[in-house]
Amino acid sequence: MKDVETRPKRYERVIILALLLASLPLILGFSLLTISSLSTNMVTNLDPDSFHSTLENWINLFKGKIATTGGIRVNIWRITLNTLVVALGVAGVVTGISALAGYSLSRIDFRGRKILMVLLLILHAFPGVALIVGVYLLYRLTFPQSHDLVGLYSFIYVILARAALEIPMSIWLMKGFFDTIPWEFEWSGIIDGASRITVWRKIMLPLIKPGVLAVALFAFLAGWQDIIYVRTFLIHPTLATFIEANIEAEYSHMPLIAAAGTVYLLPTIIFFITAQQLLLQSYSGGIKG
């Protein structure tokens, strides 16, 4: 899409090669992880003799076995579902709130706007992880008495608390995206007598799709990979807590962990690829409209 028509091919190859070189450690590291998941022991050096192919790790993983010989079985699908619920929840909350606030910061002048923006940036200085002491206390104070609600409440709380960590960043991002939309698009709507809320919903949101997706992607990843909040607040395990609790340097069967790690990466890769497509489509759509 970009400057396709006029781009010199020669440079492109140089850039691709340079990128490849820079990415080499990453490619190597993650390939070895995936390869190891298919081997009886971790493949860490380039010695082909250390690879002994087996599907055992994958079979064990899908059976929910956390060790090579017998032991405890866990419901790996349920754990994956928990992870997905948290990640989607965080993505939803973050995207909604930042799309609202980002618009007003970008388009409406009000007293305290500047302070609010600096405040949002500064909020990041608070180590979310250390703030967890306070967040935990709030959790304790609001914890439901009824046991039927506990599971649900813990999901809601972990989603909101984790989303809050992403909100300052996302609002800033979203504001940036709103800033790039020419004012004229909106003006026509306001002339027609529509309220700002209607303009935001009908005109701005469709234009801002790439931004919404970028923010949602980030929030999803944050929720998907969170460990500290999930471990402290969520009653049920997620993939991250499951893997973390079962990596023990001394006796964990690392190739099994490698398989679990590979699975953990899969949905996000799929999500990213589809989102990337959407991102581009909506962009070209937006510019024409």
Binding site: I66, G71, I72, Y136, Y139, R140, F143, H147, V150, S154, R231, T232, I235, E244, A245, N246, I247, E248, Y251, S252
Partner: peptide, 23 residues
Amino acid sequence: ETHYVASFQDAYEEYLSKQPLGQ
């Protein structure tokens, strides 16, 4: 529930934070 993890340190931390919640 039979909850079993590899790291006993992790299990302890989880117990600490969830016991007061009754979980």
